[in-house]
Nucleic acid binder design. Structure first.
Lengths: 100, 100
DNA sequence: TGACAATATTAGATTATTATAATATTGTTC
DNA sequence: GAACAATATTATAATAATCTAATATTGTCA
């Protein structure tokens, strides 16, 4: 009996890689509080427009985020609530004092 | 109130990168069942000796694994049980049917 | 001490990620 | 439909991650 069976290791490691980046992780954390449009994420992260857009695209393609157009703006949100569990587990490691 | 505060994002993303690799994740999963020596991990993963050794070194330096020499063999184990929580959260995403 | 077993390290070429700059797309308003 | 705002895409140069092959280290035992 193994934590994650061999057949799922490849997918799981790809999923990890998809969030294993400073900017992408920051985006994910911001989106924990609900959907945000790109302009808001730009403001919140301080990234360049092009760079943020590319990272959003990557997370979208990896199935981590979903987006929805509203007029001229595009809103992003976390696609699968299970990813929030992952963030929480991370938080437990890197800022345990916040996790009482 | 944010999932992981900005000041911890860098560390957390580095920690993620440290396990965001097929072989390293496989090693971590094997070690969920208890310590193993390098030869056993070689057998279990099918990696080359040099390659495995380098990945073990990386995880050791990132504080994810600890090692202990016993005679001519070296045993590895998960350094911080909180990492097991991370694996479980991953499992919840990539093989939810196993998580009832 | 010499030979062997187990593991670690180094050097190197290859491939993957990343950031920036430039350009393109899409929607809105007049 | 022209001008603008918001976002996406492409090209590309720079950096980082990876694997293999070769070599080094450490411990055991005769």
């Amino acid at each position: 009996m193994q934590a994650i069976p061999q057949e799922n290791i490849k997918d799981a490691s790809q999923g990890l890689r998809a969030i294993a980046h400073e900017l992408r992780l920051a985006v994910l954390c911001h989106l924990m509080n609900g959907p945000m449009c790109v302009a808001e994420l730009l403001e919140a992260t301080g990234a360049s427009q092009s760079n943020l857009s590319q990272h959003l695209a990557k997370m979208r393609m990896m199935g981590i985020l979903k987006n929805e157009r509203r007029g001229t703006q595009v809103y992003y949100r976390i696609a699968d609530p299970a990813f929030e569990g992952l963030i929480m587990a991370l938080k437990n490691i890197y800022c345990p004092e916040m996790c009482t």
